[in-house]
Design a protein around this nucleic acid. Structure first.
Length: 588
RNA sequence: GGCUCUGUAGCUUAACUGGAUAGAGCACCUGACUACGGAUCAGGAGGUUAGGGGUUCGAAUCCCUUCAGAGUCACCA
């Protein structure tokens, strides 16, 4: 690539001029308002040259311009703007972008193993809006890591046990009258979620009644009959009571069926599922070892703790006084199990930022226990998804359901297309698929273009808007290029001496950046970089398209070049979108 | 209260990790269609990067401080 070539050359020049030093050579793409393709930042060298930035830059520029690939240079303050020859760009363009899987690094058995955890739902309620962000981030990150040359496995941990699961089970038992997904026509996870909400209504009612009888509110919250029953059920579950286990299995299977449907529509999948019911005991043994080695300590009541105050954190419980596992115990066990299973060199947890503290502690504990790979665990933390209507609470059943959101997006895509009279008659029965592609594209792009760290606002009304920095805008550009390619009947080939205008140069340069963008996105665990890259190149292409006739160009060789350029732009759009888990339509 | 994260145009956001005059989109205003697909393009207006101080050739970015919002500090997960 151009940067590596230049870097080497500039290093030689600097050593020649100012002696052997470790120079920090930094490039940036030249700003639009100046002439040039790539810019060298000269300020860092002035402490060696003892000259003004301008003079230093000029000196380096003069030496560099002896190279064939440099056409000319200009100096503005401490910035050395270099104009690269057309020939170089064209040859790079025709050489690399036509490769299969352009920008993607091949994987073999020596590629490092990366594990990505995402989603990790509870089995007492459906997947909601927050999970959508989680799923999209995790799935997309896995794609990006794979494209950057890592051997990636996708996993989730399913929280299938605990008091919250018993709550929906109990409510179903009490009020369900044998209702099933089949008999009710409800999706399994929705059915179970309904009873979870029902439990909380009943619980609140009972608490209110107790308070009315003159019982202290705190006590009432503890003594509500239905809660006591749920606790009893949990004990039975842990004692492997047949009846409870059977019910548990039955209701979980409903939920899994429901999840499967949702995952499918979202377009995500997993290589391996871990179940909390299977892993929650795993950490206990580790705790024993940790006690022996003095990492943990035991309190008088028998509970086990770790003291992290020297790290600026608190004391944290590892095991309850009754010997049962807590969240942390289970996560320690799961992490170790995963390392045994996959021998990963890196593991990413895609989990909301309300658990920042938990993961800080988890990684620290693993490190203290002597697991060297703890250092390569990473918490991909993301902010909450807000709605214009306010906060969602799943206990009260006000959570925005993932299935509903997806259906809304489909309907939005449909109504917009109909409104615009955009229904292509040739599509016929493919229109449904198209609405799905566009609706899901809008949703996914909207969620992934934002920096994960940031809390975001998802406005379903606003997402109807298909203008601007959106998925459909990108999809439209892709479809339009496909139309050109269908109409073109000439051969696609590139003459390296042909003339290119500045918009074409810009597109070629952007295309050549693609492999590097993938690496950057992988290194910073950020799908947003891919999204923004795709948008930039689409914007540039639309501007080019508007100003330049492609199929109507003067000569066959120019047509050929322009079609080739369009084709490669389309290819990179498609690749970028696929990294985000978004499909692109041939027509729309 | 301790710790962590966030704060950029009315709104949604970007900034190559310390680089040039802080880029875009929506909304608003002005233009461009007998079209290689107008779900487009060209342009205008809109900013004390929450406030203040510091570090240096140079700060949205690093440090200190104040303010605002969120999260967390559970024998819940």
């Amino acid at each position: 690539m151009i940067e590596t070539i230049l870097r080497k050359k500039i290093d030689e020049i600097l050593i020649d001029l100012y002696g052997d030093n470790d120079y920090s050579i930094q490039f940036q793409s030249t700003r639009k308002e100046f002439e040039g393709d790539i810019t060298l930042v000269v300020f860092p060298f002035t402490r060696f040259s003892k000259l003004s930035p301008e003079i230093t830059a000029k000196k380096i520029g003069e030496l560099l311009s002896k190279l064939d690939l440099i056409n000319s240079f200009s100096v503005i303050k401490g910035f050395l703007n270099l104009v690269i020859s057309n020939k170089f760009w064209l040859s790079e363009f025709s050489k690399s972008t036509f490769e299969d899987n352009y920008g993607f690094v091949d994987i073999d058995e020596n590629s490092p193993n990366y594990l990505v955890e995402y989603c990790s739902p509870n089995t007492n309620k459906p997947i909601h809006l927050g999970h959508i962000r989680n799923n999209l981030l995790g799935f997309s990150l896995a794609n990006i890591l794979r494209a950057s040359g890592k051997n990636v496995k996708k996993v989730q941990i399913i929280n299938d046990r605990g008091i919250h699961i018993c709550k929906s089970m109990l409510a179903w038992q009490e009020f369900g009258a044998g209702e099933t997904p089949k008999s009710s026509g409800l999706k399994g996870d929705h059915l179970v979620g309904k009873y979870y909400v029902m439990f909380n209504h009943q619980y609140k009612k009972e608490v209110a009644e107790l308070i009315e009888q003159g019982i202290d509110s705190k006590l009432a919250e503890e003594k509500a009959p239905i809660l006591l029953k749920a606790k009893e059920m949990l004990l039975k579950w842990e004692a492997k009571d047949m009846e409870v286990i059977t019910l548990w299995k039955k209701m979980n299977s409903w939920v899994y069926d429901g999840f499967e449907t949702t995952y499918k529509r979202l377009g995500v999948d997993f290589d391996k599922n871990y179940y909390e019911s299977e892993t929650y005991l795993l950490g206990k043994e580790v705790v024993k070892n940790g006690l022996d080695s003095g990492v943990f300590y035991k309190k008088e009541d028998g509970s086990v703790w770790i003291d992290l105050s020297s790290e600026g954190l608190d004391e944290k419980i590892i095991l309850r006084s009754d010997g049962t596992a807590v969240y942390m115990t289970q996560d320690i066990g799961t992490a170790i199990k995963r390392h045994e299973d996959f021998n990963f060199s890196h593991m990413t947890y895609t989990v909301g930022n309300e658990q920042d503290y938990h993961f800080k502690v988890l990684f620290l504990i693993l490190e203290k226990l002597g697991y060297s790979w703890a250092k390569s665990c990473y918490h991909l933390s993301y902010g909450m998804v807000d709605l214009p209507s306010g906060k969602m609470k799943s206990r009260e059943g006000t959570a925005v359901d993932a299935d509903d959101i997806m259906e809304d997006m489909y309907q939005n895509a449909k109504s917009i297309a109909e409104e615009l009279g955009k229904i292509d008659i040739s599509l016929n029965n493919e229109t449904k698929e198209l609405y799905e592609t566009v609706g899901m594209g809008a949703l996914k792009y909207f969620m992934l273009k934002v920096d994960p760290k940031k809390r975001m606002l998802f406005d379903p009304q606003e997402s109807i808007d298909f203008n601007g920095n959106t998925g459909p805008f990108i999809q439209y550009t892709y479809a339009r290029i496909q139309s050109i390619l269908r109409k073109n009947n000439g051969v696609i080939k590139i003459d390296e001496d042909s003339d290119v205008n500045y918009k074409e140069r810009a597109l070629i340069i952007s295309l050549l950046e693609f492999p590097q963008i993938i690496q950057e996105a992988a290194n910073s665990f950020s799908p947003a970089l891919i999204a923004n890259y795709a948008y930039e190149i689409v914007k540039d292409f639309n501007s080019y398209y508007q100003s330049t006739s492609i199929l109507g160009a003067d000569s066959p060789s120019i047509i050929s070049f322009r079609v080739a350029l369009s084709q490669q732009v389309a290819k990179v759009i498609k690749s970028s979108m696929s990294l985000l888990g978004i499909n692109v339509p041939q027509r729309m």
